[in-house]
Design a protein around this nucleic acid. Sequence first.
DNA 1: CAAAAAGATTGAACAAGTTCAATAAATACA
DNA 2: TGTATTTATTGAACTTGTTCAATCTTTTTG
Lengths: 203, 203
Amino acid sequence: MGFKPDIVNLMKELLHQHISNHVTIPEKERDRFCNLFKHQLVKRKSFLLQEGETCKFEGFVIKGLFRVYHIDQNGFENILYFAIENWWITDIDSFTNNTPSQLYIEALEDSEVLLISKKDKEFAYINLPQIEKLFRIMTQKTHVALQRRMIDNLSKTADQRYLDFIKKYPQLLQRLTNLQIAAYLGISHEFLSKIRKKIVTGS
Amino acid sequence: MGFKPDIVNLMKELLHQHISNHVTIPEKERDRFCNLFKHQLVKRKSFLLQEGETCKFEGFVIKGLFRVYHIDQNGFENILYFAIENWWITDIDSFTNNTPSQLYIEALEDSEVLLISKKDKEFAYINLPQIEKLFRIMTQKTHVALQRRMIDNLSKTADQRYLDFIKKYPQLLQRLTNLQIAAYLGISHEFLSKIRKKIVTGS
DNA sequence: CAAAAAGATTGAACAAGTTCAATAAATACA
DNA sequence: TGTATTTATTGAACTTGTTCAATCTTTTTG
């Protein structure tokens, strides 16, 4: 593997911290796991994954912002989630089932990720017992988040979902365009514009 | 604990089989895990969980059919998922975070479940290493299913979602009313009725 | 088996959200 | 810095889906 520049080790600190926040793990095991990751720069508007490819990685965002989206039959973009610093990105469907992805993963800002391959992740599951627990917990968390969103999408109007969004992710709001927010909320950007007007003018 | 009737052991066979289908596990470890479950009959129209309660169990359906749903501000029921034989039921949000549930879990038929308490599940995570893996895999699977449904709900019309549903769950269809299917698809039952008419009469 | 309750269908009026087109504002980038 | 591109706003016409009310059918249960 050769030398690792200090800057990369510094970035892995973020991952160290993240892991220790979720599981109790011997330092050595944690370091072995972290060393399975490769650092990668991802320029704004470039893709980590595109539809039709099989997702071969799981990524941990060190810096920047990604969107994970799907393009439907009408050419409409639907955003499944955004990922910022300290979040994981992958298409879990494609990654676990080795099937072509329906999704695009695109950097919305110049970004940096740590990537682990499927083979190395499987190595970790077999040899590093706490990693199984880490991903059981992380998958639970993302599942809970998606379940909450599903309930909201089934039971709330677009107005309410937008108000919830700006309340829940105020910092993210400033890094996104209204087109992206609309694609996340599942409405047209024109309609979002009208919702915003209604809110400002006070209904 | 006393004697276990043969009938209960027979039911645990279903759980045995389910576990072995997902992980490689020593027989002894699997049996220790299965013995943590209690068998329970659940009559049609009765509840395993109601809104406001904290979900203290995870359940494996042996027989029957459940719906997991949420009642919104307008008193509308939104069904998150159905669970039949060999499926797990819980409110993972309430169960993992020890928070009051937003959900109801109701038997739609006279049903039977095997239930494990939170304490016993934690015991299993600590003492039975393959159980961590089992639930990592199961949570991944349910997450993938929910992700697919989220994409469909964002990108497809109600007509398409209904056609997908009857194609994907033909056997479930016969055990559900159209009210329940509508509550799963996120539409009114009147509108579902109109969709069905349109399909029969051929647009 | 009969009565009651729940489920299904239909139509008319309405509300939520889309589409298209035009214009203005902000941002990217050569 | 200026030009091209992307983003945001607005209105009018349209589509999708809701609501309410009435009627009919099926299922449940005493």
